[in-house]
Design a protein around this nucleic acid. Structure first.
Length: 421
RNA sequence: GUGGGUGUAGCUCAGGUGGUUAGAGUGCCGGGUUGUGGCCCCGGAGGUCGAGGGUUCGAAUCCCUUCACUCACCCCA
């Protein structure tokens, strides 16, 4: 019979990998906590409408990348392609703003996009997500970016570039959009098919296109930064100043428009050289207006997402062994010894010593091999001879030395020796 | 969605122009050490050659179809 395999683009994280994930999540939680962020756990399934309204109908995500299906209740549901929409939904649904309009929230978990999988891009992937709601001070933009960079530094990721831009607000973006549309009039036939379609829906997205012709056309186009209203201009300047205070290197990239419609003012992206076209390790931005668009009060917000798979693939501790290994392995020969081993093994576990034993009753040699394979620090040899003499041999597998200990008070003696090493 | 690459042992891969029992390394199991891991030596188990069809006396090898995986592109984490 044929075995059933995982769904395309969905990956198992095996024990050899899982340790890295735990490590990254641990550091993330530490850094987030230091900046006052609290965990929120949200569902992975939402009503499709949530993403259409927040991310935008004409975005690539909504147009062609969502895992959407009709459930039995005749309702369209979607496996979340990103977390911000859900966090904002929860913030509104529980009227968190009534208690305190300022919320610093983070969530870690899987996201889903139905794309063709390749290196650094999976259909189920994982993000660490931070959202700061209720503040629009430009210093908070810098603070969130600082936190992100601090996190990346803590896990020793280097060779990264931080790119920032401002997309303006509802005041200034229409003027820019109009200017851009005006600029593109008469140049439609030079653009690719996708961009011709984007023109009507969202001309800003032409900046995203990688088609040679489109790049050439857009190269001379007006730039958003020249159209910022005084408020947005001031905001952007203060963000840059605040970043400079912490010596965070950044590049202003006026062509970075990002793929989600809800961004306004500050946007940013952290990219690496090591992942080819899948170069974005983290990305985010301000989304003043999103909360209102989702039916809530006019509350500002800013956040980012870090791609965990991409992080791990460029992290320097890739080759390190995160597998746990036992402190003690008990090799037992004979029925009596096996019974005693079973008892000692589990008693030590209860007392906090990571202990393994062999149940196969095979030769001492093969049991020792197993102790070695598991990289156990110590091995306890418990044979018929030892039992008869009321003792056991404790072998230090690293040193290759061993000592005899009495069976009376065996556990305490082992604990004492193990704690000492 | 579009284009390329690859499918042979658990894993990494060999197998000129078709030829009989399909190999290596590694891993696994056992032995060399009547009760002591790693290094070394010896032995063993393990394969519908991705699947289906075709050509042929004969196909892992040639042809067709299909599936899977993978890489790249668009876009993004």
């Amino acid at each position: 019979m044929e075995i059933i395999t995982a769904v395309r683009g969905f990956k198992d994280i095996l024990p050899v990998e899982a340790g890295k994930w735990q490590y990254i999540e641990k550091i993330a939680r530490e850094v987030l906590a230091n900046f006052g962020f609290r965990e929120i756990r949200i569902p992975i399934l939402e009503k499709t409408e949530l993403f259409k309204r927040s991310i935008g109908e004409s975005t690539d995500i909504v147009e062609k990348e969502m895992y959407t299906f009709l459930d039995r209740g005749n309702e369209y549901l979607t496996l979340r392609p990103e977390a911000t929409a859900s966090v904002v939904r929860a913030y509104l649904e529980h009227t968190m703003y009534a208690q305190d309009p300022v919320a610093r929230l983070f969530t870690i978990g899987p996201m889903f996009r139905r794309e063709r999988p390749q290196r650094g891009r999976y259909r189920q992937f994982h993000q660490i997500n931070a959202e700061l709601l209720g503040l629009d001070d430009p210093r908070t933009d810098a603070e969130v970016i600082l936190m992100l960079m601090q996190f990346l530094m803590r896990i020793e990721i280097t060779d990264l570039r931080l790119m920032i831009n401002s997309l303006g607000c509802r005041e200034c973006r229409p003027a820019f959009r109009k200017a851009l549309s005006g600029f593109l009039v008469g140049k439609e036939e030079q653009l690719c098919k996708d961009c011709q379609r984007r023109l009507a829906m969202n001309p800003l997205r032409v900046f995203d296109c990688k088609t040679a012709n489109c790049i050439e056309v857009i190269d001379h186009a007006p730039q958003i930064l020249d159209f910022l209203c005084p408020g947005c201009m001031d905001h952007f300047t203060k963000v840059k100043e605040a970043l400079a205070m912490f010596a965070i290197a950044f590049e202003v990239n006026p062509k970075m428009v990002r793929g989600l419609d809800y961004y306004a003012k500050t946007t940013f992206e952290v990219v690496t050289e090591h992942l080819g076209a899948q170069n974005a390790v983290a990305g985010g931005g301000r989304y003043d207006g999103l909360v209102k668009d989702l039916g809530g009060p006019d509350i500002p917000g800013i956040g980012f997402a870090v791609g965990v798979e991409r992080l791990i693939s460029i992290s320097p501790f890739m080759g390190e062994n995160f597998l746990i290994s036992p402190q003690l392995f008990i090799a037992a020969l004979g029925d009596k010894a096996q019974m005693l081993a079973f008892s000692v093994c589990n008693r030590l576990r209860i007392q906090g010593i990571q202990t393994e034993m062999d149940y196969s009753g095979k030769s001492l040699k093969s049991q020792m091999k197993r102790a070695d394979k598991l990289s156990s620090r110590y091995a306890l040899i418990l044979g018929e001879r030892e039992i008869a003499e009321n003792k056991a041999e404790l072998r230090d597998m690293q040193q290759g030395t061993q000592e005899t200990i009495g069976l009376d008070d065996l556990e305490n003696a082992i604990i004492k020796i193990l704690k000492g090493s």
